[in-house]
Design a protein around this nucleic acid. Structure first.
Ligand SMILES: [Mn+2]
Ligand SMILES: [Mn+2]
Ligand SMILES: [Zn+2]
Ligand SMILES: [Zn+2]
Lengths: 136, 136
DNA sequence: TTCTAGTTTATAATAATTCTAAACTAGAAA
DNA sequence: TTTCTAGTTTAGAATTATTATAAACTAGAA
């Protein structure tokens, strides 16, 4: 019950009520030591496996959105027509395999940018992402 | 009619019949000396302005897809739920303004990568894109 | 225990895109 | 020049991902 308390506190910190649905989803997302990429579709399958609906699809959408706003998830832009999310919220980059449509992390330090442009006037850089598309 | 011939040849080269719809769209996309970014929605408005339908929406989708496959357009991955395309097919990078959802080109030489990772075994790099997200 | 704002849920609605299949046409061949 | 047909266009239906709606539920403060 210790990890559960951590999750409950994490949610409370962001003004999110720790409902049983959110706690369940948070466990599924943040409990492992390894981070991963997912879509709402894959998360839904993970949560509601073998025909047992534990959390409605609407709530999965709502929760992913809430966790993203709270900064617990990052949205990744790769494939059209489907949103990908990342439980790794540290600044990092990606390989995107065009064949399998799979994302792989590239640690921040694995790419060095020795020259970057200044943003347009009045705008500042929010983040910088490198996507390296790969194929066979 | 010279530019039209160029377009007709360009299409023929890729095995695309130069129909009047394709030629019209190609003119709209490739005639200017400056490149630009667009969505199917904005292209549709440009082609079919003031309520006069010159080309059906289905054909606009088909043609953008055909031109992209032929290498005359590049798809850009930025926003979820909508595909962006680029008439600039040279290797380059982008600013993406989160507020206005607008893309701006960054010339290839404006970013220098002094260290990039080796791709997973059996895979090779198809391209590398940097997106710098900016905001006020 | 009561109360209510926040949350969940089924379901409808929307938006972008893709599919379908019938009508049309570019252009090779007769 | 006309014929022929594979490739193309088109309206509309279908699909997919996502968002909106509004009624039922619940966490947790009082
Ligand atoms: Mn879509
Ligand atoms: Mn969508
Ligand atoms: Zn990642
Ligand atoms: Zn561009």
């Amino acid at each position: 019950m210790n990890q559960k308390n951590e999750i409950v506190n994490k949610l409370r910190t962001s003004g999110l009520r720790p409902t049983k649905q959110r706690v369940l989803i948070a466990k599924s997302l943040f409990d492992s030591d390894k981070t991963f990429h997912f879509t709402v579709e894959t998360l839904n399958k993970k949560i509601n496996k073998n025909g047992v609906t534990k959390v409605s699809l609407a709530t999965i959408y709502n929760t992913v959105e809430a966790f993203t706003s709270a900064g617990y998830l990052k949205e990744i832009l790769t494939s059209k027509n489907k949103s990908y999310y990342d439980t790794n919220i540290k600044s990092h980059h990606h390989f995107y395999d065009e064949g399998s449509k799979e994302l792989t992390d590239i640690r921040y330090s694995q790419i060095r940018l020795s020259k970057i442009p200044t943003p347009p006037k009045g705008k500042k850089i929010k983040n910088l992402e490198v996507v390296i598309r790969i194929q066979k």
